[in-house]
Write a protein that binds this DNA or RNA. Structure first.
Lengths: 337, 337
DNA sequence: CACCGTTGCTCAATCGATGAAGCAAGAATT
DNA sequence: AATTCTTGCTTCATCGATTGAGCAACGGTG
């Protein structure tokens, strides 16, 4: 038996006929302003009952076409494959729903063309706000939104044309670097400069983290090794390659490392496991990002956990206030365990 | 300067006026069937150009209201906080888009009420299909869909009223158990029964995995210890508690373990790290689920990776074929590294 | 009894896009 | 020259929900 009949959907007109009343009354009852429209509670009850019996669900397309506001809020996100973005998406949905907004999310696989296409699609769905998370070209998206009269925000990576909410990368990296340097001193007896690995030098976050990295070295009076700053990309393979290239050319790799994301850390740890260089003494790592299994890796790994609820609270504050200033930068400090 | 003017959106009527033509022609040109409607390519070009200049985006609400099919496909998912669901969601989006469908996803936090509410909301948005992933009460959702004439599928956890696509939990668990038992024999010299930990005994997947677990023991002639089957829930804390209770009452814990998910594994590893029981010899683990960092934990951990692309390919096959039989069960074998 | 205010509803226009039906002008055919 | 065909549009009803305007019935007031 196949019950999958593509049966016609119940509309307010069907309900009106069943209830012996008008579609107008049905609409008023079902969207809750029947008091304002002076519908008797008798009729309201009857309509509500019939609607339930019929399994009625409003047609949002029709409803939204008529209303002036859609109450839809869109988010684009690069990937769902790590805890940071997963947590962003989950928190976004919860907070949006708590505010009576309908969240729609789409992932763009770090593909600039997909980002633009996704933004256009969101606009077609009449989103009231679009939040661009980790976008490669956030300003382009802001332009598209502006042209359509839609407001937008940047999250995680900043742009210049809309308010951006990001981690306080400089202060976070400075603190993480400091902690890692101190760990190195405690475990190996002497302070030594760290290796910076992962991320793209062209992206704002990586640049700021490198700045914090430098500053912490300066704070503690440790000289930086310029060729020990490897912004080789985020991908695990890139990080692994960079390390093995360094090991090949220099014969060693610093014991202390600042790893720019859990994504890169995956490659770093894989390489370390495969190399004999750390057989005697395990590496001492600071990772700018958080993952529960990393805490279990058994090594000395310090993590800076980006404050996702904090960032999204800031974002929804702006959404609720109505609008933000062009290009304002809001920095949220990451958390340390 | 604040450019966030909530300006009125451009419609096909605006474009028609600018082009000195009718809205009908504009519509035909912009949705691509202007050839069929015999619009000259001159006019088509002109309209296209003007639409681009104005940054026009169709109003999907209006468009969908008129069309008979929405081409929207919905998915509900419990959480975004592990690789399995992350990968499901990402693959779902990619595959949906490749088929010209618009995916909308919502997470329900394993809350039965939220599941129902989310399903209703999806129906309001006129989804053509609803995929319930890991739902606590998939049949309830199928009923709601059926009442609205919408088709539905179950993923990950099966139901009886719609086609279900799940991992081959029995065969997968049998193989994983076998591999883990052999690992135990190789590392500790003798075969010994495993501990089963994590999951809910009431859920189909856990029950099937326990069945496979038993069968593998039987295959290899290893007796099962009934009190070593702990379906204590998925949460990390639950797993950790169950282990420490066992250690307290029995003084030891089997060295070989079958852990029912990476979620539970988190608690298991945390407890192991905190306990002296495994200081001498590390545990030997089989985990029914996959995570890249788990592979780096440095222990002997075998993983059964659920075949997400395989499962979603099966799902979209059904979506494209139009409809599936009531309650059919499709089992996809998990992968071993 | 005429008038007014209130209650409880209905009517009809509207949102923007779509597409069947129709129409006018020119080209082709007889 | 009369007819038919083709091309290239426009007109208008429609999808389902919403809402301002309006109307009938009734109770109360002078």
């Amino acid at each position: 038996m196949n019950q999958q009949r593509p049966q016609k959907k119940t509309t307010i007109y069907d309900l009106a006929e069943l209830a012996g009343t008008s579609a107008s009354a049905v609409s008023a009852v079902l969207n809750g302003n029947w008091k304002k429209r002076r519908i008797s509670s008798q009729l309201a009850e009857k309509i509500t009952r019939i609607a339930e019996e019929q399994g009625y669900a409003v047609n949002m397309q029709a409803s939204l076409l008529r209303r002036e506001k859609s109450r839809i809020i869109g988010m684009i996100v690069p990937k769902y494959d790590n805890r940071y973005f997963g947590s962003i998406v989950e928190t976004f949905e919860i907070m949006a729903r708590a505010r009576g907004l309908f969240p729609i999310i789409t992932c763009t696989l770090r593909d600039p063309d997909l980002e633009i296409e996704a933004a256009r699609t969101m606009l077609s769905y009449q989103v009231e706000w679009l939040i661009s998370t980790g976008a490669t070209d956030p300003d382009r998206i802001t332009d598209i939104c502006l042209a359509a009269g839609t407001r937008s925000l940047n999250l995680d990576l900043p742009g210049t044309k809309a308010t951006s909410i990001i981690s306080d990368n400089f202060a976070g990296a400075r603190e993480l670097t400091k902690r890692t340097l101190i760990n190195v001193e405690q475990k190996s007896g002497a302070m030594a400069p760290l290796l910076f690995i992962g991320g793209r030098g062209s992206d704002h976050n990586t640049a700021e983290r490198i700045r914090g990295f430098r500053m912490a070295h300066q704070d503690l009076g440790v000289p930086i090794e310029e060729h020990h700053i490897l912004a080789c990309g985020y991908a695990p393979e890139k990080a692994a390659q960079a390390l093995s290239a360094m090991a090949a050319s220099e014969g060693s790799v610093p014991r202390g490392m600042f790893v720019n994301s859990t994504i890169s850390l995956e490659g770093v740890m894989r390489w370390i496991k495969s190399s004999p260089l750390f057989d005697a003494a395990p590496p001492i790592i600071g990772c700018f990002d958080w993952d529960p299994f990393v805490a279990l890796l058994g090594h000395d790994i310090e993590m800076a956990r980006q404050d996702v609820p904090g960032m999204l609270t800031a974002a929804f504050d702006i959404v609720e206030k109505g609008s933000g200033d062009t290009g304002k930068l809001i920095e949220i400090p990451p958390l340390f365990a």
